[in-house]
Every structure is written in structure tokens, then in C-alpha cells.
Simulated assay, not measured.
Amino acid sequence: MKKHLNTLFVTTQGAYLAKDGETVAVRIDGGVALRVPLHTLASIVCFGNVGCSPFLMGFCGERDVGLSFLTENGRFLARVQGPVSGNVLLRREQYRRADDPAFSAAVAGACVLGKVANSRTVLLRALRDHGDKVDAPALQEGIDRLGAAIRRLQGELALDEVRGVEGDAARVYFNTFDHLIIRDKDHFFMRRRSRRPPLDRINCLLSFLYTLVVNDMRSALESVGLDPAVGYLHRDRPGRAGLALDLMEEFRPMADRLALSLVNLGQLQQGDFAVSDGGAVRMSDTARKTLLVAYQKRKQEEMVHPFLEERMSLGLFFHTQALLFARYLRDELDGYPPVIWK
């Protein structure tokens, strides 16, 4: 099993990363603010105006350390990658299977099943833990409708039918999401899902977290030799990591729960966000750092993998799911087993 390593998040604007022996040196205002041994890192993620030396880029490529560049708000810009790893036969099989409608529908169905089941668990936990503070009938209705979606996904559906179920389930879930927010409802609320740009604080949090999740999934897929761009639920589109988006679906509710915890526990507050004249919402540097620390801690928590029945850190689940998908492509598994939280 691959060792779970850390991710270095660099958010200070104007920072410059350089190779210093076997370490990454983070330089700010002409001085070295931090040195991190590269062997302790799985990836480096830079937000906004952060520079990097070509020597460090090459070093990361040689050591298989992912180096990604995002905007301050978390939109993916680019990724530096070393030589493509893995078996070319595996990637060729991935490409062939993407042209098979039945196989694509099966993969899409499994990914959406994981997403819907885990979304339902988020509602169940809210009802259990905060039943006296939430609209219990509304949550129960959402739970029942998501349960119906799960039953439908367990049948054989065409790809368009899977997408239809996913769309309906997402509407049910996000129409219920506002009931899960129990603190400072005047400033934290979910009226509808908005992305580019996010139009409220909750959507801002979710969009940022989803970017972190898809970046981790993309790194995991590359590490086992799969092409993150060729998906099954998310079809080919220039610049889109289709397979990473497919396999991240089951992890979206994990990000949702983290966003809710940060708000409901008061770790993020109204003043941590700025609203532009056009309505777009942005996080402050302080809020971004709070979120990144919480995300890193969440990935270090240990859980039992429901399929392998092995205890591991949550951060390793991304790599494990990539390995399981590779086994599915090799016909070593009868189907792709999504992570379904309990």
C-alpha cells in the first residue's frame, strides 16, 4: 500500500519555490520562509501569484511529486508532470472501454451510486445529530427521494438515464442542503448551486473544496498509469479531466461535510468572505488557510475502506480507488466498487 504523504499548499502571494538540495525552499520577500524535504510530499499546490524554478519542476517530475497551479479562488490552471508512468496496455484498454456504451454506463452508474448514497448519508447524519435544529420532515423527504434514486441506479441503465438520475438526485440534495446549515443563516445559506462565479459563501466553499478533491483524484490516477482526461460519465472535452471528475463523485459529500463543519462550528464566519459588486463571493487568505488546514487534517483521519476492509488514512482512498478502477479495466473485478460511507 502506498504511503500517505503530505500536500504542500502555498497561498502567500509573491512566494517563489526553488530546489535546495533535496528540499523545496519557499522564498518570501527575499528570505526562506520554509524548507520541506521533497520525499515527504505527495504533491505541491500553488494558489495565485506563486512562482517556481524550472529546476524544482524537473525535480518534482523525477520524484513523481505532483505540482499544480490554481487561481487564488481555486480554479485549476495547469499541472507539471514528469514522464507518463504505468502500463501503456492499461491506458489503451481505458481508451477502448470509453468507446463502449455499456461499459461507460456501468462505470457512470457506479460513480453516481456512490455520490447519491453518500449524499443520503450526509442528510441522515444531520437528521440524527441535529434533529431538533433542522427541518426534519424536509430532510426525511430528501432521504426518501435519494433512496429511490439509489434503487433505480442498481438496475441496468443507459448512460443518458444515469445522467438523468444524477441530475434529479443533485437537485433534491442541494434543495435540502440549506437545512443542514444551523449557524448564522443570515450569511451562510444555499439557495441553489452556483459555480462560476459562486454567488454565496457556501457555494464558494464547495467549489474550492471540489477543486482540491479533483486535484487529489487526478494525481492518484496518474500515479497508477491511467489517463485522467478520458472519462465515462464525463465525456471527452478539451482541458477537462473526465476520469478524475468521474471518480471524485463519491468524494463530493466528504467535501460537503467538511464545509458544513467549518460553518456550523464557527471556524469560518461572515467576515472571512468578500462579495463583489457583481455578486461573486471570494474567500479571504485567512479563510483559505483555515480550509486547507482542515482539509489536510481530514485526509489524515483513518477509516476502514468498505471494499478492502483495511484501515487507512482518508487521503489514501483516492489512490485506492484509482487502483481498484485499474483492476476493473484489467477484468480483475466484476465492477468498480465506489466508496460508500457509513
Rank of each mutant, 00 (worst) to 15 (best):
H234Y: 02
A244T: 01
V50F: 03
E156H: 11
S194C: 08
I28F: 01
D129N: 12
A322W: 03
K133P: 02
A274C: 05
Y232V: 02
F9V: 10
I44T: 00
A98Q: 06
R257L: 10
K299L: 15
K133E: 13
V339W: 14
E309H: 15
A105Q: 06
S313Y: 04
R163P: 01
R311I: 03
L17P: 00
R27V: 14
L258D: 09
S313D: 10
P37D: 02
H319Y: 08
L157D: 06
F208K: 05
G30Y: 02
C52Q: 02
L205H: 11
Q300G: 07
L8Y: 02
R183L: 11
L199E: 11
G14A: 06
V214I: 08
V165Y: 01
R257V: 11
Y336K: 01
M254N: 06
Y328A: 04
Y328D: 06
L41T: 00
H319G: 02
N215Q: 07
L70Y: 04
F189L: 12
F174A: 14
V50P: 02
A117N: 07
D132W: 11
A229Q: 07
E310F: 12
N49E: 12
A255I: 10
L146D: 01
L34W: 00
I28P: 01
E222W: 06
V112Y: 06
S276H: 13
E332D: 13
